[in-house]
Amino acid sequence: MKYWEKPFGREKPQVFQGSINIFKDRCKGCGFCIEFCPNNVLDFSNEFNKKGYHPPEIIFTKKCTYCGLCESICPDSAIFVIREEVK
């Protein structure tokens, strides 16, 4: 099929790669990152950290767009993401 015009946006959806880093022992278990993650990537883990809280764990790595919202909202600097753009 041939387009008369090129469609808006990119031809392929942009894919992001990166890493989510969690400092488990800094976590105070407030759940902000889990609640406000747009793609529900995180959830409470069953393990306890040394403070006695349940830190978050990554449940859907593939859904993560590495937007960094969890990093911004974390009050304890316990989570951060590194985003690498794939070309």
């Binding site: 890493s19 989510i20 880093n21 969690i22 400092f23 488990k24 800094r26 105070k28 278990g29 407030c30 759940g31 902000f32 403070k51 809280y53 990554i58 790595t61 990093e71 009050p75 304890d76 600097s77 951060f80 590194i82």
Partner: peptide, 27 residues
Amino acid sequence: MQNNAAHHPMEKYLRMDRMPHIWCSSC
């Protein structure tokens, strides 16, 4: 995908030698 050796980007702007801070969970 966990890399605890990496540094949080805010670490250089905070006094990490004083962490954890005194604020309650979910403050």
